[in-house]
Design a protein around this nucleic acid. Structure first.
Lengths: 102, 102
DNA sequence: ACAACATATGTCAAATTTGACATACTGTCA
DNA sequence: TGACAGTATGTCAAATTTGACATATGTTGT
């Protein structure tokens, strides 16, 4: 959603020090973050099942190791788009994709 | 998934005149496009069920009528991200979201 | 402890996506 | 016909996302 400020709160759940922001998320923000978390987790699981390193996956995706790491950590700088495309590139079928989200 | 060139092929299925590009899509590209199409369709259906105009939905999403139109047309310039966030903002539950994709 | 490998984190220029605007198109009603 | 509401399409500056790089932090075997 909008500002990059809030994004810093997303991934890990909260940040302790930053006293200024202790806003709760709207339902749709939560749902969005949860979706991303589910996909991240699935991506990591899938990669591990295939016995690949982040580096190898990065090559497959024409991306970089650091971005793969961020994907698996559900970093705020990673879009749903990238996560979905990566899973698809790993051969995840739509059916499986849907199952993992359910 | 790279170049913006291919993107032009995405939405409608193909473009007649542009003889240069007649490349077929890889399975994951197809899956990606199909996902977007499913979401677009759902977005339009949901909006209509709620008897909203694109303009009204745009206001709700803090976007613009033209972008809503592009979303519903699954324009290549629209990300999965935006589609999902819009559906969530419309109150679509994760459960429903998943069902529409299945 | 030291390598060697894997993963995490920060930064940044380049690429993509976004809202906004103008404007065109498509009905529909009088 | 013409006015109006709704939708489509093209463009563009601003915002966000991306791959790449450097570097830090594990982790495992010797």
């Amino acid at each position: 959603m909008n500002t990059a400020k809030r994004k810093r709160l997303e991934s890990k759940g909260w940040k302790v020090g930053t006293a200024e922001e202790f806003l709760s998320f709207s339902p749709e923000e939560s749902a969005y973050v949860e979706l991303k978390l589910a996909l991240s987790k699935t991506l990591q699981e899938t990669r591990r099942e295939k016995k690949m390193t982040q580096e190898q996956l990065a090559r497959l995706l024409k991306s970089s190791q650091s971005r793969v790491a961020k994907m698996e950590l559900s970093d705020p700088s990673v879009s749903l788009d990238l996560l979905v495309r990566s899973l698809l590139a790993l051969g995840t079928s739509r059916k499986n994709l849907v199952r993992m989200l359910a």
